[in-house]
Design a protein around this nucleic acid. Structure first.
Lengths: 412, 412
DNA sequence: GCCCTATTAATTCCATTTGATGGATTATTC
DNA sequence: GAATAATCCATCAAATGGAATTAATAGGGC
């Protein structure tokens, strides 16, 4: 965006830098913050005072060690900021209220099938209000609402992301500007993201990704998705579709829907396809949880299906290694934890046999936080990220999203 | 790096922003710069005065149109900054002196075989001095020297990139800190990069990539390499190996060296492998140029070799599309231009048949600048980039590379 | 063992500096 | 005289250097 900067923006950036330093490495004394940020002692003192006044950080008990005045340690105030995450998928809906440290404070969950956009908005708005009420915290402490939707999203004019969910699966949802509708209804900033990217952001903000600045997130949901964090921040790509590993074309395989012309990787991790396979054996699954039961019993169809998926996935995992050279690859999503772990362990066995140079440095595979709440927690981080992450955009004039302004103009 | 900023750094950033705005969209009036950068008119006036004093920009004749005072347009001064690029490959050596606009002003070229590090340093230092002398421009206007080396590079302590060229092809070159040696010898900042990444930077700075902020660069050299530009700047990956598309494992093919265990994409674009194939037909090639002659004559072995390479490459080009979602894919390197064009055209035919969703947005393929000088020009941009690109690091304290300082502390 | 003082460390107060910015001014042409 | 481009001058915001303040302990004298 080639825009300049000035003192105001520099201040906003320094504020975020100090906050993030405390978040990642806290508790810290003002002195230690000085060393990490290269800011002057007075500057840190001024900034921390503002953060204390805003209740975003707390001064802990003083710590005496050796001579000199005792250090007073600063740490994040868990109650200083809250965010709401709504995970809205094909057959279920989960909402969570998370605090500044990423703890889930409140939670709602429903099974829903194909609601109309109007019903969905009502459901979301009601859930948000309920979650906020439970907390009892003032609405001022809620920094926004994140919404996770399956599949790719579209960008309409004004660079506002609106919802363009996969039309075949969600009739009536074509081109609904759900972000704006919900934002107006709630009077809060709303962020929309596909759930793979959101999970990656969540891992970056709260998880092991805190200290890894380049990673790929393999998301196992109803289909196969992916999210990227590069240079410490989410990377969306030119059309907002970066990480869409499921769309990569593959050789055809045994477990494919009949009549499919161009096989692609996503097919081998599609739960609907698995459901079709299981129907032949008179087994019904309609929810990712049920996959766990079958896996525990080592159901033949499921194990065979998994093995083929892993065989198809492995070469493209190596493509990720070579092309993106990430510091880690996370595996997560809505599959039950043991299934994710199985896929990871198998990949750990298979990949070394395929690598061209054994000795070459390669990324570690990790199981990410999984389960129903993982996605909701992921999207809940979007408002936090927008308000508090020390991204370069903060330093440039006219920051991309309006919501950023909130923290820039924090006059406390 | 989580470091803060202050007025000095903000100034350095604004200086670069103004310069880059002129470079990309010039000639511009101060007023127009104001609008693009969101800086105040006085600020722009001050900054442009500094740039004029430093001879980095020029004030063109005034332009009168309609009422009001006539606009005086500002543009880059081609003679304001020079940079040297040295492309140092297995069988040849090219050196160029480029001006601020990317024009090649001087050029030297040698055929050399396996020089020792000492001889190489002497050759490079002599060439640099010769190139500079030819120009007659003062040494002060030379902002640095870029060196391109084949294959992956290593990072030693102190985060200084030192040379660790593929040891089998370059005996005696293991762990030579060539950057430091050359920098001391010349008294100029030296930048080392593998030639695929350098070509990508060159395309970003001078080429069509000027206005594309995410792209992949497919580099056809002695082997197959790649470079990435993401969010407007080079992306190196966690181990500095991002873009190494040649290392991706593939199915085995017809044209492979005997006894190879793990086939990988690079094998199908290896000129030594092609040379072996041609030996059977009593044809010798030792230089990429000669590939062009055979291609012109549609030599059967070459065409067959190319077709297999393209078939192997195509699925991974789609992997790039899906995983990275770039705005463009450039094809370039040391292959003769008609060969590159042929590969591009064939890919343009093949890719649509493989894509899972036809309608989905996909990146355009482009032929990049090619030929011997392309790489040299690519590495020559590294000093320019380091000194003038408005990268976020400029705003953070303690910028990663020392050389950046030069422009930050420009007291003009 | 107790008290007083020197020492060390953490933080804050005050004056200075730097660079962006708003308003008035100058210059140039229609 | 009106309109536009660019500059001069005064102001302002935020980082910063140096002195001052506060708080604790170590150590020596008694």
């Amino acid at each position: 965006m080639l825009t300049g900067t000035n003192l105001k923006y520099a201040r906003a950036h320094n504020l975020r830098i100090v906050l993030e330093t405390i978040r990642l490495f806290g508790p810290l004394s003002r002195k230690e913050i000085t060393e990490r940020t290269e800011l002057g002692l007075q500057t840190v003192s001024n900034i921390t005072r503002k953060l204390l006044d805003a209740d975003l950080i707390l001064e802990a008990d003083r710590l005496q060690e050796g001579r000199g005045a005792p250090t007073s340690l600063l740490n994040l105030n868990a109650q200083g900021a809250f965010s709401v995450g709504l995970d809205f998928d094909r057959e279920h809906f989960t909402g969570v209220l998370v605090d500044f440290l990423g703890n889930v404070c409140q939670r709602v969950s429903h099974s829903v099938l194909f609601p109309t956009p109007e019903n969905a908005v009502t459901l979301m708005a009601d859930s948000v209000n309920k979650l906020i009420r439970c907390q009892g915290a003032s609405r001022k402490r809620i920094w926004g609402v994140g919404v996770g939707l399956p599949g790719p999203l579209g960008i309409s004019e004004g660079s506002v992301v609106t919802n363009v969910v996969n039309p075949s699966a969600f009739p009536g949802w074509d081109n609904v500007p759900i972000r704006d509708i919900l934002a107006e209804r709630l009077g809060l900033p709303v962020f929309i993201e596909n759930n793979a990217s959101a999970a990656a952001v969540g891992e970056r903000w709260y998880g092991r990704g805190k200290h890894i600045s380049n990673f790929f997130y393999l998301f196992f949901g109803v289909g196969l998705g992916g999210g990227l964090v590069l240079n410490g921040r989410p990377y969306d790509g030119h059309n907002g579709n970066a990480g869409e590993i499921g769309a990569i074309p593959t050789s055809s395989g045994r477990h494919m829907p009949t009549g499919l012309v161009n096989p692609h990787l996503g097919v081998f991790f599609s739960l609907p396809v698995l459901a079709k396979l299981l129907e032949r054996e008179d087994v019904n699954i309609s929810h990712p949880e049920e996959l766990g039961d079958l896996f525990e019993r080592k159901h033949e169809v499921v194990m065979d299906w998994l093995e083929e998926g892993i065989a198809q996935l492995a070469p493209f995992t190596l493509a990720i290694e070579c092309l993106i050279d990430p510091g880690a690859i996370f595996l997560g999503g809505r599959y039950p934890e043991p299934v994710i772990r199985f896929i990871k362990d198998r990949l750990d066995e298979v990949l070394p046999t395929l690598r061209f140079e054994e000795k070459m440095a390669h990324p570690q595979l990790y199981c990410a936080t999984v389960g129903e709440d993982a996605t909701a927690l992921g999207v809940a981080t979007l408002p936090m990220y927008s308000s508090f992450a020390p991204i370069p955009e903060v330093l440039m004039k006219r920051p991309s999203n309006g919501p950023n302004e909130s923290f820039i103009s924090l006059n406390v």
